[in-house]
Design a protein around this nucleic acid. Structure first.
Length: 540
RNA sequence: GGGCCGUUGGCUUAGUCUGGUAGAGCAAUGGACUCUUAAUCCAUCGGUCGGGGGUUCGAAUCCCUCACGGCCCGCCA
């Protein structure tokens, strides 16, 4: 069977590589030392959908989220207290949580990501690296790599040109004296006792991302012997060890660790006699304009932030749509992605015709994945995001019955059906919530300063209050506004603007008649009255 | 030095993985909704798909090559 979608292809490739496994584990690493942004989440989504694809092919599969929490703290993340300074160089799982809500710094960070997984309906098995080492899961691989470290060093040099590990063990012990891991160097390995001897005399420069200050960390000078469970492998070989120990069959990775994956593939195959996992390579996310997203610049876009403005589907689509190309992730992307999910749904349910059969098949499949292979039986309402955002941006957040008003406007302008099921109503309200958050952050606050009215404007507004009646429909109101403007020699365009400003605090809005009707004629009149009283007399 | 990704109308881009008539949005122009901001709709304008070569009945799409741009690696993880 020829597969169109990359995740199906990867799954097939995984099965072809070894058809007889009891269970296929896909994996993503959770960086535990810096605040995760949407890119970190992408790794997980991509690995997760491959596990779904495997299941669909009748295999048992599992997605493992592996927290790299034995990594040492190198940089204090932006916005974290500088008191962490004394822990720079320590494994993040051994550092207290500065916010006190988790058992360690590392756990705090990885929870940010697993929390996003939970919100998106991604099922995973959490595995802490610290626990894995402690429990001895990696013992065999560590012993083998230490014993044959010279071969490992040669492989590393052949692949990367780096000669460091020709002489050095690819392993860092945690100093039993000072608790740091980046200041030690292994001097000997005892295969019988499964211990390493080390000296803690290294030095490295860390950083406080908030202040930009360099933090120089020096080893305490101690020498010691410790069990191989009390340390960690260097990254050049760590993936390989982990892949074999956990039987990993698939791992997606970003461009930043391309080199590392190459080395580890080689180590895996040549030294550990384990076929490396199938990979999917993806580009990193960039700023609009191609700049680097840097955690220290504070321009990280967290999954949590995305989910304030958009549904999980939009975020999943972002990750699955294209793998290899760099993508921009910022506020502007969200409406586009939300609408694209609607489009996919329309294609899936045949509301939109796609003549090219391959394209149609592909889009339908993409939609299934966006829904994590759990497709609803009936389509949802597909209201364009920016239509809702437009309306949401002009109706103040504290307006009573705000959702109802917006839904009414949508219905009146034929963007939503006139009768809604309870479920559809809730969908709409969810979309209003997203769009409201979005406009709040994308459009800025809504100012409403006292107006300066000319005599004619004041008269016109007063007359409007007189003319408007409860029994008028939207069209009558629309015409009344227009007529009133003309009677006072005001340009209708200007008068409408004024009216929007009075009612909504902004220069534009939905059709005025509809708006007043939905706000309620009486309430609209009261708002206008209040505005006239608060206003100042202006010249001409 | 090694590697990855991009280059499509004035601008932003889809389409590249899946070869089959290059689509959209913004902008511009003209028009419609008996007169209004906004919105909507219709129409028009505009592309040798970075250059060159190859494969193919057929290439924006696959292969090679060159140019330009961006990023990653060459500390550590």
């Amino acid at each position: 069977m020829s597969e169109l979608f990359w995740a199906d292809k990867s799954a097939q490739q995984i099965i072809d590589q070894d058809p007889s496994r009891d269970i296929y584990v896909t994996e993503c690493g959770l960086g535990a030392s810096g605040i995760p942004h949407v890119g970190s989440l992408g790794d997980g989504i991509r690995s997760y959908v491959v596990s779904l694809a495997l299941k669909e092919k009748g295999k048992d599969a599992l997605f493992q989220a592996y927290s790299d929490d034995r990594d040492g703290l190198r940089k204090i993340p932006y916005g974290f207290p500088s008191e962490l300074k004394e822990y720079v160089g320590n494994p993040v799982s051994h550092i207290p949580d500065p916010f006190g809500c988790h058992d360690s710094f590392g756990h705090h960070i990885s929870s940010l990501l697993t929390d996003a997984f939970d919100k998106m309906g991604i099922e995973y098995r959490f595995q802490s690296s610290d626990e894995a080492y402690k429990a001895g899961i990696l013992d065999k691989e560590i012993a083998l790599l230490l014993e044959r470290h010279k071969e490992a060093g040669t492989i590393i040099r052949n692949v990367t040109g780096q000669e460091k590990y020709l002489t050095q063990y690819p392993y860092f012990a945690i100093c039993e004296e000072c608790g740091k891991i980046y200041t030690t160097r292994v001097t000997d390995f005892d295969p019988e006792a499964e211990t390493v001897s080390y000296v803690c005399d290294g030095e490295f420069v860390g950083k406080d991302s908030t202040t930009g200050e360099d933090i120089v960390v020096r080893g305490c000078g101690a020498t010691g012997t410790t069990h191989i469970r009390n340390g960690k492998l260097a990254w050049k070989v760590e993936f390989a060890a982990r892949w074999r120990a956990f039987g990993i069959a698939f791992e997606a990775f970003g461009k930043d660790i391309l080199e590392s994956v190459k080395v580890n593939d080689a180590i895996c195959e040549q030294l550990l006699s384990y076929t490396p996992p199938v990979h999917a390579f993806y580009e990193l996310f960039v700023e609009r304009g191609g700049g680097k997203i840097s955690k220290s610049k504070g321009n990280v876009f967290t999954p949590q932030r995305w989910l304030r403005y958009g549904a999980p589907e939009s975020l999943i689509l972002l990750m699955l749509k294209r793998l290899a190309y760099a993508r921009v992730v910022d506020l502007e992307e969200i409406p586009k992605l939300m609408d694209e999910v609607n489009y996919l749904e329309d294609v899936y349910f045949g509301k939109v015709k796609v003549n090219n059969e391959k394209e149609r098949t592909h889009l339908r499949r993409l939609y299934e994945y966006v829904k994590l292979l759990d497709v609803p039986e009936t389509p949802s309402l597909s209201v364009p995001y920016n239509v809702i955002a437009n309306i949401a941006s002009v109706i103040p957040a504290d307006t009573p019955n705000r959702d109802e008003i917006i839904i009414n406007i949508l219905q009146n302008s034929k963007k939503a059906p006139s009768s809604l099921t309870e479920e559809q109503r809730e969908d709409l309200m969810g979309m209003i919530r997203y769009a409201t958050e979005w406009t709040k952050d994308a459009g800025g606050p809504m100012a409403h300063e006292p107006l300066e009215l000319t005599e004619a404007e004041r008269e016109a507004l007063l007359q409007l209050i007189d003319v408007l009646g409860d029994d008028m429909d939207a069209e009558d109101i629309q015409n009344a506004v227009f007529t009133t403007a003309q009677q006072h020699d005001l340009k209708p365009a200007k008068f409408f603007k004024l009216l929007y400003y009075v009612l909504l605090g902004v220069q534009r809005g939905p059709r005025a008649g509809t708006l007043i009707k939905t706000i309620g004629v009486q309430r609209a009149c009261r708002i206008i009255e209040r505005e006239i009283k608060a206003s100042r007399q202006g010249s001409s």
